[in-house]
Design a protein around this nucleic acid. Structure first.
Length: 411
DNA sequence: ATTCCACAGGAAGCGACGGCCC
DNA sequence: GGGCCGTCGCTTCCTGTGGAAT
């Protein structure tokens, strides 16, 4: 009996023809074999790295470009080619990729590198220089060229300073058989300002710039992927140009464009349409942004949630351009109300800045003359939806019982 | 020209945690 | 078990500052 119901359920869904053939090629993790509009960058990289195959040390490289301009894909592609050619020619090359957003301290970078050469290194416990020599010995065991790719290298510098880069750029002096070169990828053009001049000059021997894609180029990229991703004629003709146009507004982010196309397809599929239409793209645009906000808010630490809650509450009461002091006052009272530890204002300042960087609020430092200097904060996400998401947290739930309007604003 | 508000944000360091070593 | 080490979230203490008010 239950079977009948279920089979009926699925039959209905199966009747609408699938529009995807392979949606994986639209995901950010997919690396295509062909990278449109990046010939120049691929050639520059290859020209620099080819010295590895001649037994010389390739120059260190810095790569600049915003998110979704194909930096990572290009570097990985060139790296793969280099390894394969090295294999054939008997000049072994290893290309190691590290994302510094995840692996963001010197210890972790070195540990990660050492582990790649089958050394056992604990997550913590060893002195950093021990990990360094472990790595050094591992790679110097046989002659080879090692290319270390540090993606989001600016994150590494911001958190751990330039010690890691200093040590890596000097490592060749300690090696007998092996040569190491470093490829840094950054989306911040100015991050070298904070570097030790020696590190800056050694790391920036060569620079490669990845300009953002324009709408036409994005269109080409989407076109190419859509051929393998969708059934023929599954897209309304205006769909790809529209996705490209939306993404071009977001500083030419190809990842965003592909996401948009994929989600559009999924929405069309869910609506049991056998054609992806313009309306699906517009819906997808909204869905992506709203999903992102909900996800970010949901996974915030409790203290950040409470601070955000305070800001949303003030905003809902009609307050505009909140100041740090206002937010902090309300936050303190909310803390007492639900019996949470009260953080210092110093810490709250930092948390507000973090929320700013996540794009949930907008915080600008302004001076009000005699009335001091503060951050002017505005909430840049939908109020009701955000409040609801915040109240899902069991520690904040009780706040829904007593609306802020019933508590005094200034204690 | 000075004053002075209401903070911003840097520096140092603390304590807890998880994990190493011997 | 005791001595270290790296990391995280946080506090304490601090110096710096743009511009309306005086």
């Amino acid at each position: 009996m239950a079977n009948e119901v279920l089979s009926g359920l699925f039959e209905e869904l199966l009747q609408s023809k699938p529009i995807f053939i392979n949606r994986e090629v639209l995901r950010p993790s997919y690396t295509p074999d062909y990278l449109p509009h990046r010939k120049e960058q691929i050639n520059s990289l290859a020209t620099i790295l080819v010295s590895a195959l001649r037994g010389e040390t390739p120059s260190n490289i810095l790569i600049y470009g915003k998110t979704g301009t194909g930096k990572t894909a290009v570097v990985k592609y060139v790296g793969k080619e280099l390894e394969e050619t090295g294999e054939k020619k008997g000049t072994p090359c290893s290309v190691l990729y590290i994302n510094c957003e995840v692996i963001d301290t010197q210890y972790r970078v070195l540990a990660h590198l050492a582990r790649h050469f089958d050394k056992e290194v604990p997550h913590t416990g060893w002195p950093t220089d021990q990990v360094y020599s472990e790595f050094k010995n591992a790679i110097d065991a046989r002659a080879q060229t090692i290319v270390i790719i540090l993606d989001e290298i600016d994150k590494l510098v911001k958190k751990g300073g330039d010690d890691t880069l200093y040590n890596l750029s000097r490592i060749n002096a300690d090696l007998r058989n092996t040569r190491v070169s470093v490829v840094g990828i950054s989306n911040d053009l100015k991050f070298t300002e904070f570097l030790d001049p020696r590190v800056r000059s050694s790391l920036g021997e060569e620079e490669v710039i990845f300009p953002p894609y324009d709408a036409n180029q994005l269109g080409d990229i989407l076109e190419q992927r859509a051929r393998t991703a969708f059934k023929p004629d599954a897209l309304e003709p205006s769909v790809i140009p529209l996705c490209a146009a939306f993404a071009a507004q977001e500083h030419g982010d190809a990842r965003r464009a592909l996401d948009l196309l994929r989600v559009s397809g999924e929405l069309a599929e869910r609506a049991q349409s056998n054609l992806v239409k313009e309306e699906h793209v517009r819906a997808a645009q909204n869905k992506i942004e709203s999903d992102r906000v909900v996800e970010v808010v949901r996974t915030l630490p409790t203290q950040s949630k409470l601070i955000l809650y305070a800001m949303v509450s003030l905003y809902k009461k009609g307050a505009k351009d909140l100041t740090t002091g206002e937010v902090y006052n309300l936050y303190k009272r909310l803390c007492r109300q639900i019996d949470m530890d009260i953080l210092t204002q110093r810490r709250v300042t930092d948390i507000i800045s973090e929320l700013d960087m996540l794009g949930i609020v907008n915080a600008v430092v302004v001076s009000k003359g005699r009335y001091g200097r503060t951050k002017e904060i505005s909430v840049s996400v939908p109020l009701e939806q955000t409040k609801a998401t915040l109240l899902e947290d069991y520690r904040l739930k009780t706040l829904s019982m007593t609306p802020v309007s019933q508590t005094r604003l200034y204690a």
